[in-house]
Design a binder for these strands. Structure first.
Length: 471
RNA sequence: GGCGCUAUAGCCAAGUGGUAAGGCACAGGUCUGCAACACCUAGAUCUCCAGUUCAAAUCUGGAUGGCGCCUCCA
């Protein structure tokens, strides 16, 4: 399998450290608000990555953190704590906020058919481990105290910017004006490992530590949670591109300083979903959520289809028009599959050479740095293929859908109506057929119009009359 | 101010040296009393300029547009 590695800035052959187990870490959500569509796009592609590895026969152990301890707006200890801000807004304790949005997150990913990570770790469950970790860094001389906070000294690290490829000298001299500067830092890139100074009187999340009562810095959780659950080295670390220059860079600095070993073999980053106004951002306030899509009548899986139709390393510009077009395509795809499903004999087990060719093509697309758009094209080509039998098609679609997770073979119960209603519909159809036979088309059309008004659409097919519920 | 990504038909989007996948929408057709469904068919020389090459959307240089990062964010 070929995979792009941010560390080398090139596509590499994927070879896990231990061939029997792929260790994978994915940065999870900060639970002070709902996940937005951009966040979810990343989780969809991470899901594809994990499922592709499993599809190719690897065992995978995947860890995801839930950030439930407050992040500040910046290391300068300014702005507002996010959890606290959420709590104030909704009149709840920070713990309630965290629980509420954690639950909402898992509901969202379930609707999108995203597999839950094997291990889901809450940041607040690892406080003692953070303290041990910071102590370890302190003993090795990587830290300093200033203004009550414990800082990591990046000048002690060789090649601090190896992931981002940025030039530290340039960063020093040319920083944007709006960025507030923490005067206590020796170097602008130094970051806080443990805070004891907080401007927020009612900061609810506090723990005792050798440096005083306070709370952990925001980079530390990913390092410690991964060390605890995956050991000192891992294969793939995932996240959004925004994490490259700061969060992941700092994770590498502290983790490799702590263990003295190279940490992550492949860094995997997903590009942004952008809005008409640019990047979608939680802190901007207004943002698109999955439940908003549902309110507008979209199927969550249409969004999954939409996301899979583009590449994870390319920005995607979101619009309701293109989502609607994706939903249309997705619904048509499902209905085509349903029509072949009706006359397929699934008991047949052996796949022909022709059918296996499609399976290979599908696999090749995913092995090519997760080219999901082309994988879907293989699916469309399969549907059109004359040389493949219907039962083989169904078998292959079942196989593909283990990965795509678009419920391709699942029939929605769109036609669920009361028995009385069903009887009524059948009766009306009979009446209409009768009218048609008598060439009374006016009556036939009137019946069709009447049913349509009740939300029932008729379809005259070669096999007979079908009806379906709309809206 | 610095770093980086990107530009393909009305829309979404693959393709990274050999003469443009796929989907949606639209149009034409088959079917149908009509409509819808389904099926078939048609449709772009790849932002612009210059260069490398027998050959470029695909490599190089430049221009222009869009976007991201350097602040918490996927």
């Amino acid at each position: 399998m070929k995979l792009y590695n941010t560390l080398s800035k090139s596509i590499e052959d994927f070879k896990p450290i231990d061939e029997n187990l792929v260790k994978m870490y994915t940065c999870g959500p900060t639970v002070y608000n709902y996940a937005h569509l951009g966040n979810l796009r990343t989780y969809i592609h991470e899901d594809i990555l994990e499922k592709t590895l499993r599809y190719l026969g690897y065992n995978v152990k995947r860890v995801m953190n839930i950030t439930d301890v407050g992040h500040l707006e910046s290391d300068a200890d300014e702005g507002e704590d996010k959890m606290l801000k959420g709590a104030k807004r909704e009149n709840k304790t920070v713990w309630e906020i965290a629980q509420h949005y954690t639950d909402a997150f898992f509901r969202d990913i379930e609707k999108l058919n995203i597999k839950k990570a094997d291990i889901v770790a809450k940041a607040t469950d690892y406080i003692n481990e953070y303290i041990e970790f910071i102590k370890g860094l302190e003993e090795k001389g990587y830290t300093y105290m200033a203004n009550g906070n414990v800082y990591f000294d990046i000048t002690k690290v060789e090649d601090y910017t190896k992931l981002s490829g940025m030039d530290l000298e340039q960063l020093k001299t040319a920083s944007r004006e709006e960025v507030s500067i923490d005067v206590h830092k020796k170097n602008p890139q130094d970051f806080v490992l443990w805070f004891t100074k907080s401007k927020f009187e009612n900061q609810a999340m506090k723990w005792d530590s050798p440096w005083g009562v306070g709370y952990p810095g925001w980079h530390i959780e990913c390092s410690v949670i991964s060390l605890k659950n995956l050991g000192e080295q891992m294969d793939i670390h995932c996240g959004g591109v925004d994490h490259i220059p700061v969060h992941h860079t700092n994770e590498i600095a502290q983790t490799e300083s702590y263990t003295g070993k190279p940490w992550v073999k492949y860094w995997w980053h997903s590009e942004f979903l952008i809005d008409q106004d640019g990047k979608m951002s939680k802190s901007k306030g207004e943002f698109l959520t999955l439940s908003l899509l549902e309110k507008k009548g979209f199927n969550p899986l249409s969004y999954r289809y939409y996301a899979l139709n583009s590449h994870y390393r390319k920005q995607l510009a979101f619009s309701f028009d293109s989502l609607a077009s994706a939903e249309n395509a997705y619904m048509k795809l499902k209905s085509r599959i349903r029509s072949i499903n009706d006359n397929a004999d699934i008991s047949e087990m052996e796949l022909s050479k022709e059918a296996i060719k499609y399976k290979e093509e599908f696999k090749n697309c995913l092995e090519d740095d997760l080219n999901t758009a082309n994988a879907i094209t293989v699916l469309f080509n399969l549907l059109k293929a004359d040389e493949v039998t219907n039962s083989e098609k169904i078998k292959l679609i079942e196989d593909f859908d283990k990965l795509l997770s678009l419920d391709l073979l699942k029939d929605e119960e769109v036609n669920e109506v009361h028995d009385e209603m069903a009887e009524y519909i059948e009766e009306m159809i009979q009446n209409r057929q009768e009218a048609k036979k008598n060439k009374n088309y006016q009556l036939a059309d009137a019946i069709r119009a009447e049913l349509l008004e009740k939300g029932i659409m008729l379809e005259d097919t070669r096999q007979g009359v079908n009806w379906k519920k709309i809206n």
